[in-house]
Design a binder for these strands. Structure first.
Lengths: 135, 135
DNA sequence: ATAAAGTCCACTAACTTGGTGGGGTGTTTT
DNA sequence: AAAACACCCCACCAAGTTAGTGGACTTTAT
């Protein structure tokens, strides 16, 4: 399941996608419009900034804005950043791989199955962007 | 991600699938062969029994065994029982549904996307059984 | 200078995960 | 009948994660 943090991140990013190219948006505005706890949102946006997804401007007239256009930001990128692995097992993860102890991956039925699940999921989230979230 | 508990459950169930129709298997045997902490495994097997997946026999010659044949036990059933929801959002879950507050499901881009992910995942885990985990 | 707005650090309550310990209950064998 | 066997059940625990909060600091515009 996606954490609340991830859901907040997507809400905020969707909002910023709608306002893309309209200049900086206040954290407080996003928090109010999307009903996200202000201080928590602060952390989230900062994290997205450090990951090069958002940029910000301080002082009057400042705020947050998308660093790239919405169709260039993949859903999978946001999930991995805020939520963590997309795979259901570490031994099957592309970005968070850890080998299975007590299970040789060559002959593990669960391993093979979870690769299929991973690929089916990636097929979707790697090919959708913030643009697709705006309806 | 699947919890360690879920991974243990699948290891144990795979082992019991291999020994299907060979009579009861000791918890301690499963624990030793699959390297699962004994007491933890006890809890897991009991839970699987209460869910009608396993059955058990007490006293000498006792142990655990599959209640149905391996090809009748779906992977999805086990995941839902031990791990919880398969969906990435509560508002998209078939078995653990909770409505989204602050997000009308009619017009939520993330909602629609996560339905696609859910269906792609279900397509796999609903159509695989314990039999498929034995290689 | 002052106010606006993001940055950073540290802390916390509640919950979940991954266990462990010990006694109780039912079955089989002797 | 009693001992041995093996599952059943309850309660507890440490560590980590989640979902925040509070307060001081820095940068920028006017």
């Amino acid at each position: 399941m996606l954490s609340k943090k991830s859901q907040y991140a997507f809400k905020a990013l969707t909002y910023l996608s709608e306002k893309f190219n309209e200049g900086p948006v206040l954290i407080s505005e996003i928090a109010r419009k999307k009903k996200i706890p202000l201080k928590f949102l602060e952390n989230i946006l900062l994290e997205l900034k450090k990951a090069d997804i958002l940029d910000s401007k301080k002082g009057k007239g400042g705020g947050y804005f998308l660093k790239k256009s919405p169709e260039k930001i993949k859903v999978s990128t946001v999930i991995r950043l805020i939520n963590g692995p997309i795979s259901m097992l570490p031994c099957v993860s592309l970005y968070f791989y850890e080998r299975c102890k007590n299970c040789n991956e060559k002959s593990c039925g669960l391993h093979d199955l979870m690769i299929q699940v991973r690929d089916a999921t990636l097929e979707i989230v790697e090919n959708r962007t913030l643009k697709d979230l705006v309806v």
